[in-house]
Each structure stands twice: as structure tokens, then as C-alpha cells.
Design a protein around this nucleic acid. Structure first.
Length: 276
RNA sequence: AUUAAUAAAUUC
């Protein structure tokens, strides 16, 4: 039922599989049949905890029941396989979905491209894009972000910015995630001033930075030992009504601690405790 | 808010 599915998917997302299975059992004992949404949630939960074998067991089970897996099922499995070291199996999975008449969509390719980027194979991630295009699947903004992020983490900021221009040429509207990725990229190569300048230019065109944007910048400043700048950005968040989160606080606290400024580290920690 | 993907610290 709707209610059971809601609870089960919540537990699966929270990596609480034993409890999810308990609810599943109650559901079955109550005479209710799990549906595809239920199974998809379980498959995703097992993939999240790295138990791809169990995820495939659930998948095989639903196929044997004569149920038709959908693009969500394969998306979760793809994600799970990508997080293992058995990337060859992603090919088999794509064949399997086509065999079952399920066409990969753009999301099906996200995990694949990201996995290649994370393994340092950005060229292969670009090949994934070519493969998508051959199948008539258009890369979307989130897909571009996977590539841009891969390039940023490899320190290739010129190429990242080129991709941004390519997106704009294709009439894709970059979102706050794209811009935050780029700002973070400049911070990572230690070019905080370029990161701040980019933010400044973007804000002038109407961009609304979020907590992640600021946390990235603060982190960059901390790593560059520019604690006054880090604190300035932290204070600036208040003025635009952005609430720092746990990560923002821990970045700043660690920054002060690493700089040997325990007094400010404790001051920020107290402030964090006070704000809940 | 019933199910899959992309950005920030720590862990890897």
C-alpha cells in the first residue's frame, strides 16, 4: 500500500534495511502484495549499502513473479554496480534493460559517467555522452554537471568553463549546482579569488548562491589559510538569510583549529550549539 | 514527500 511503501522507502534511504524488511513482512502478513515501487525501494536500499548481490536477488525475484522492471529499477541497479569495482557489468545491465524493453533515459547514464569520472577516466565519461547521443538521449544539466565536476576535481578549470559555454550554446540553463561546482573547482586548485570573482559576476546576473556554495568558498578560504576571509563569508551568509548547516560549521571550526586558533574554533562551536 | 542520478567537510 501507499503507506507501507512510504515507510519502506524511507527506511531504505536511511540504510535501515532490517527494519524495512520487517515492515515488508507485516505488509505481506496483512495480506497486502508488495508492488514494483516496494521492490524498487528495496533494491535501491541494498545498493546503497553496497549489497548489490542482494539487490539482484530482489530483482530476479520480481522478474520471476512476472513483474516488469522499470527505469527506476535499472537506475538503482546501475547506481549500485557503478559503486563496485565491476564496471564491466554496467554493459550487461544496459543490455538487460533493452532486452526487457526498457529504454535507458538520461538518468540511467548519470551514474555511469560519474563512476568513470571518480575513477579518473574522464575521457570514458565523455564516451558515455557520445553513446547517449547515439541512442538519442540528450545530456541534461545534471549530466553536464557530472562532467564539469569531473573536470573540476581533476583541476581542469579551463575545460570546465568551456563545457559551461557549450551548455549555454545548447540553450541549457545552468543551475545553482553547476555554478557551485565551478566555484568549488576554483577553490580546489587554490584559486579562491577567481572563485569569489565568479560568484560576484554570477550574483550580478541574478544567481542565488546556496549553503553549499558558501560552504565550498569557506572551505577554500580555510585551506588557503585565509581565515579572515572565511569568517567574512560566514557572516555574509547571515545578511542574505542563508543558514549555515552542520557541514558549514565543521568546515569553519576545523579551519580555525588547523590554523591553531582554538579560541575562535570554540567560539564557532558554541555558536553552533546555541543555534541547535 | 511512495521508488533511481549531479555540487560542500569528515570517513574511504
Amino acid at each position: 500500500s501507499f503507506t507501507h511503501n512510504t515507510i519502506i522507502s524511507g527506511l531504505c534511504r536511511a540504510n535501515r534495511m532490517p527494519e524495512a524488511n520487517r515492515v515488508l513482512n507485516e505488509m505481506v502478513e496483512g495480506g497486502l502484495k508488495p508492488d514494483l515501487v516496494t521492490y524498487n525501494a528495496l533494491i535501491d536500499g541494498y545498493c546503497r549499502e553496497g549489497n548489490v548481490g542482494k539487490a539482484f536477488e530482489v530483482y530476479n525475484g520480481l522478474v520471476m513473479k512476472g513483474m516488469q522492471a522499470d527505469v527506476y529499477t535499472y537506475g538503482s541497479l546501475m547506481n549500485g554496480v557503478c559503486k563496485t569495482d565491476r564496471m564491466e557489468e554496467t554493459r550487461i545491465l544496459i543490455k538487460e534493460m533493452l532486452l526487457h524493453g526498457v529504454m535507458p533515459n538520461v538518468i540511467s547514464y548519470h551514474s555511469l559517467a560519474k563512476a568513470y569520472c571518480d575513477k579518473g577516466n574522464i575521457e570514458v565519461a565523455f564516451l558515455v555522452r557520445d553513446e547517449m547521443l547515439e541512442r538519442g538521449v540528450m545530456p541534461d544539466v545534471a549530466f553536464y554537471n557530472v562532467l564539469i565536476d569531473g573536470l573540476c576535481k581533476a583541476g581542469e578549470m579551463e575545460t570546465s568553463m568551456q563545457l559551461l559555454r557549450e551548455m549555454l550554446d545548447k540553450r541549457l540553463i545552468p543551475d545553482d549546482i553547476i555554478y557551485t561546482t565551478l566555484i568549488d573547482g576554483y577553490c580546489r586548485i587554490g584559486n579562491c579569488s577567481e572563485a569569489v570573482m565568479l560568484l560576484f559576476r554570477l550574483v550580478e546576473t541574478g544567481f542565488k548562491p546556496n549553503v553549499v556554495t558558501y560552504t565550498s568558498l569557506i572551505c577554500g578560504m580555510c585551506q588557503a589559510n585565509k581565515m579572515e576571509e572565511a569568517n567574512k563569508l560566514f557572516e555574509e551568509m547571515r545578511t542574505i538569510n542563508l543558514m549555515p548547516n552542520e557541514i558549514t560549521y565543521s568546515v569553519l571550526i576545523n579551519g580555525y583549529a588547523n590554523a591553531g586558533n582554538m579560541q575562535d574554533a570554540f567560539r564557532v562551536r558554541d555558536e553552533m550549539v546555541k543555534s541547535g
